Simulated assay, not measured.
Amino acid sequence: MTPIRHKHSDGNAVLDAARDCVLAVGVRRTTLTDVARRAGVSRMTLYRKWPDVRTLVGDLMTREWVAVATDALPGHDPTAPTLVRLVDGLTAGVRAFRAHPLFHKIIDVDPELLLPYVLDRRGASQDALLELLVAALREGHTDGSVRADHPVRQARSLLLIAQAFTLSLRTMSDETDPDLTAAAFDDELRMILERTLTP
């Protein structure tokens, strides 16, 4: 998937520059000076909003991950049950995350950057994804296609499932075995989601 480029504001120009630097050399070797130079802004402009590279990369990940999730959601179709749109969107989103070049770079070069969001606390991107999920679940409760339950708990459970299939799939898949490919696990994910959410 080609990274999404936004050129309509200085903030997005800085995030674009940060993304290009991370893709080139990884997070640990990226400096605010490099990002400022690439974005065509002063270092002081960056320091006013981002005190260090990790804060900047955190905002970058939020922008990219939320864009991936939003793009994966099927367009609104009043004839399609929310359950179908939710399962389709989650499955497509997990696939898109795994294919995203920024995600690949971080996993390959700086995986420790993701550990706090897996082990200790939620990040801004996770909270944004949870908001999308809660809204979709409430729609599903209303149209009767999704099992009625506590929507926040349901959303957090869905995100836990999606994170496992995104972050840990390479430890379980085997592309030399047709029954254990990433695509086969995507089918398994779809089945898990359908069985979890069907009333």
Results as ranks from 00 to 15, higher is better:
119 L>S: 13
141 H>F: 10
161 I>W: 06
122 R>K: 12
40 G>C: 03
64 E>Q: 13
184 A>W: 06
24 A>G: 05
138 R>Y: 04
127 D>R: 14
171 T>P: 02
18 A>M: 12
117 Y>Q: 06
153 R>W: 11
81 P>R: 09
129 L>Q: 04
124 A>G: 08
106 I>E: 05
3 P>Y: 10
196 T>P: 03
183 A>M: 02
128 A>R: 06
196 T>G: 07
92 A>T: 14
86 L>I: 08
183 A>W: 05
186 D>R: 06
67 A>Q: 08
16 D>P: 01
93 G>E: 05
67 A>T: 07
57 V>Y: 04
182 A>I: 04
72 A>H: 08
59 D>E: 15
32 L>R: 09
167 L>H: 12
122 R>V: 05
58 G>F: 01
91 T>V: 15
183 A>C: 03
159 L>G: 02
171 T>H: 14
172 M>C: 12
15 L>N: 01
116 P>A: 06
84 V>E: 13
177 D>H: 09
182 A>R: 03
110 D>R: 02
141 H>I: 01
158 L>R: 08
179 D>Q: 13
10 D>Q: 14
136 A>Q: 14
98 R>H: 02
106 I>A: 05
145 S>T: 01
181 T>E: 02
3 P>C: 09
78 P>I: 00
139 E>Q: 15
24 A>S: 15
190 R>L: 01
5 R>D: 08
96 A>W: 00
10 D>W: 07
157 S>A: 15
91 T>A: 04
41 V>Y: 01
2 T>H: 13
61 M>L: 10
97 F>T: 00
197 L>P: 08
155 A>E: 00
166 T>Q: 10
173 S>V: 09
79 T>M: 11
44 M>H: 09
3 P>A: 09
134 V>L: 05
147 R>P: 11
159 L>F: 08
72 A>F: 06
9 S>R: 12
187 D>K: 10
168 S>L: 13
133 L>M: 07
43 R>D: 11
101 P>Y: 00
167 L>T: 04
33 T>R: 14
29 R>L: 13
112 E>R: 06
195 R>W: 08
96 A>P: 01
125 S>L: 11
1 M>H: 08
35 V>E: 02
92 A>G: 07
157 S>G: 12
19 R>Q: 15
184 A>Y: 07
21 C>F: 03
61 M>H: 02
105 K>G: 04
66 V>F: 03
20 D>E: 15
79 T>G: 11
22 V>D: 02
131 E>P: 03
100 H>K: 07
73 L>S: 10
72 A>E: 03
48 R>W: 04
42 S>Y: 01
175 E>L: 01
54 R>E: 14
186 D>F: 01
192 I>M: 11
99 A>L: 14
137 L>D: 01
74 P>G: 09
5 R>E: 13
161 I>P: 05
146 V>R: 06
28 R>N: 09
26 G>K: 00
